[in-house]
Amino acid sequence: MSEKEIGKGRTLTFEILKYTPSDPESKPHFATYRLEETPGMTLFIALNMIREEQDPDLSFDFVCRAGICGSCGMMVNGKPLLACRTLTKDYPKGVIRLMPMPAFELLKDLSVNTGRWMNGMSKRVESWIHRSKERDISVLEERVEPEIAERTFELDRCIECGICVASCATALMRHDFVGAVGLNRIARFYVDPHDERSDEDFYELIGDDNGIFGCMALMACEDHCPKKLPLQEKIAFMRRKMASIK
């Protein structure tokens, strides 16, 4: 980055939805803030500056600020994105409108309850290894084909940020839809040789309109997934498997 680039930046305009549902006095409205852009500015940096200098009451969620933990999904000019790795320089007009992700319970301003949603999803798809017998941990581990381990890892990379749910038309219409995140989780355990569940077992969990048959294949989940998970391919694969269950 040159010295020139680090000079005085543009003035950005942020329009941010403010609302505290638990407060009967509170009405949803957009608050406007102006901020001088700095080099490499992310929404993480910008929102913290706004809170420190202009609005100490503004609520949002960040944890790792590195795109790893999945805390900071929000609607940025209409698209669901991880705010921590969204750079302000990518908005040439300098106007950025932030809203909380839909489909989740709104806690306050940009903060939504993805935790509760994901916990419910984890229980619904029984997001854990099912096996009848545990192995002695002092003996050599069970062998796994390297390629199978890699395929499992590929699907295990999901960070439960909720962006696929916020992008999903089915999820907005059917509040019980398990979402791409839940279907991907099933696909993940389907590949994992440690898991002993059969096709029938998985059908019991997702073989309905709130599960694998609810997907309308609009593909916005995959378009927006920050981890670039192969969601459509996996959903299609699981649907074929589930549809063939008699």
């Binding site: 854990w128 290894i129 096996r131 545990e134 192995r135 941990i137 002092s138 003996v139 581990e141 069970e142 062998r143 796994v144 084909e145 390297p146 381990a149 890699e150 499992t152 890892f153 295990d156 355990f189 994992d192 440690h194 898991d195």
Partner: peptide
């Protein structure tokens, strides 16, 4: 070593040797 073998059973997809 026991911890890592336990985690393998709990679904941690450790990178494996070819």
């Amino acid at each position: 070593p026991k911890a890592i073998r336990e985690l393998a059973q709990w679904g941690v997809p450790w990178t494996r040797i070819s």
